[in-house]
Design a protein around this nucleic acid. Structure first.
Lengths: 201, 201
DNA sequence: ATTAGAGTGAACAAATCTGTTCACTTACTA
DNA sequence: TAGTAAGTGAACAGATTTGTTCACTCTAAT
C-alpha cells in the first residue's frame, strides 16, 4: 500500500475516534496528516470510503491484539497457573484445558483495562460510529456489526463446545465495560467486568 | 412551558436519537415540527442548548419509567411471588424483602426488552451523544455522565446496604445490553442480561 | 378597540463542508 | 535522459450549516 494512503488512514482513524465522524472534517484530516486534498480523492472516492478504510484498519488492530492476547496467555499464563506435575502428567485433560481457557479469556479484560487507562481511549470506534449513522443496513453499520460478531466468534472458539451463548455474555460484559469507561469515566470498569466474567466461567 | 417550545424539544429528541446530533440539522427539526426558525432561537440561544433540553427531557422520561417500574413491581410482583402465608406472617422479613428487591431490579430488564423491540429504539441517547462530543468536560458529556450515575444510584438504593459495587455491575449489564441490541441488532440482549443479573443478585 | 406576546416567513450573512480541477513539482526507472 | 506515477497547492463550485433580522399576523387580555 502507498505510504501516503496508509498515513491518511491512520490519521483519519485517530481523529474519527477522538472527535467523531461527522465532527471531523476532511480538512482537519488533511492538515493533520500533511496530505493534499487531491491525493485523498485519488485514493478514496468519498469521505465515507475513508471512514470504512479507517474502520477496517481498526478492525485488524483489535482482532490481532485479541488473538495474540489469547495466544500469549496460552503459552505463559497456563504454565504459571498449573503445577509442573499437572503439566507433566497430562496438559490436555478436560480440567486443565478448561482452566487454561478461562484464564485466556480473562486476560482480555486486562487488555481492556490497559486501553481504558491509556491516553488514546475515546470509546470504541464501532460503538461510536453506530451512534452516528442511522440506517442499520448502511455499509458502515454492517461493518460495525460484523466486527463485533467477529470478536464474539473468537471468544466462542475459546470456550468448550463453542458455547456461543456464553460468548455473547462475555461480549456483553465487554461492551458494558467500554460504555461505563467512556460515558461515566469509570476506568476501572474492565476489572469490574473481569470479576463478573470469572463468576460466569 | 410554552407549547411550541415543548413540541420543539420533543421533535428534536426523536430526531437526534434516530439520526444523531451532528447529522440532524436545525432545518430538519424545524420542518418536522412546523416551528419557525425565529421561534427556535427565541427559546434557545443555540443548537447546543436545544440538545441539552432534549437530553433533559429524555433524562426525566427514563428516571420516571425506572422509578415506576420499581414501584409497580413492588406492589404486584411481590404478592405473586410470595405465598399468602409469607405475606400474612411478616412481609418485611429480611428474606422476603431481599426477594422483592431482586424482582424489582430484574423487572428493569423487562423494560429494556420492550424498548429494544419497539420501533423507537435507536440506541441510548446518552451513549450516542457521548460518542459525538469529544471533550469529557463539555456540558453535554457531563450531563450524560450524571444521567448514567442517577440510574445506578436508583439501583443502589434498591439493594441491601446501598451496595454501590453491585449497582455498578447491574449498570454495566444494562449498558452492555443496549450496545449489543443497537450495534449488533440482537434485540434479545435484555433477556441475556437479565439472566446474568439474576445470577449476580 | 388597543396593546402585548408569541409565532411566522423569508431573506440574508458568514462560515464550513465535501468534492473537482488543473498546472506544477518531485522522484524513480526504463 | 525522457517518461511515468504520485503528490502538491490553490482556486473553485455548490451545497449545507448555524444563526440573525425584520416586517407581518394572529390571538388573548385589558
Amino acid at each position: 500500500m502507498q505510504p501516503r494512503k496508509q498515513h491518511l488512514i491512520e490519521t483519519a482513524l485517530t481523529l474519527f475516534n477522538q472527535y467523531g465522524y461527522h465532527a471531523t472534517g476532511i480538512d482537519l484530516i488533511l492538515a493533520e496528516s500533511g496530505v493534499s486534498k487531491a491525493t485523498l480523492y485519488k485514493h478514496f472516492r468519498s469521505k465515507e470510503a475513508l471512514i470504512l478504510a479507517a474502520l477496517q484498519l481498526r478492525h485488524e488492530q483489535v482482532i490481532t491484539r485479541l488473538q495474540s492476547t489469547i495466544d500469549d496467555s496460552n503459552k505463559s499464563q497456563l504454565k504459571h497457573d498449573l503445577t509442573d506435575q499437572q503439566l507433566m502428567n497430562n496438559a490436555s485433560t478436560n480440567a486443565a484445558t478448561d482452566k487454561a481457557a478461562s484464564e485466556k479469556l480473562l486476560a482480555i479484560f486486562d487488555d481492556l483495562n490497559e486501553w481504558f487507562n491509556s491516553e488514546t481511549f475515546f470509546g470504541c470506534n464501532f460503538i461510536n460510529v453506530s451512534a452516528e449513522y442511522a440506517d442499520p443496513n448502511h455499509p458502515i453499520n454492517l461493518f460495525a456489526a460484523k466486527h463485533k460478531q467477529a470478536i464474539v466468534d473468537i471468544i466462542a472458539a475459546q470456550l468448550a463446545e463453542q458455547d456461543s451463548h456464553k460468548a455473547d455474555q462475555i461480549g456483553l460484559l465487554i461492551e458494558g465495560a467500554i460504555v461505563m469507561a467512556h460515558t461515566r469515566g469509570i476506568k476501572q470498569s474492565a476489572l469490574l467486568a473481569k470479576e463478573m466474567a470469572r463468576q460466569l466461567i
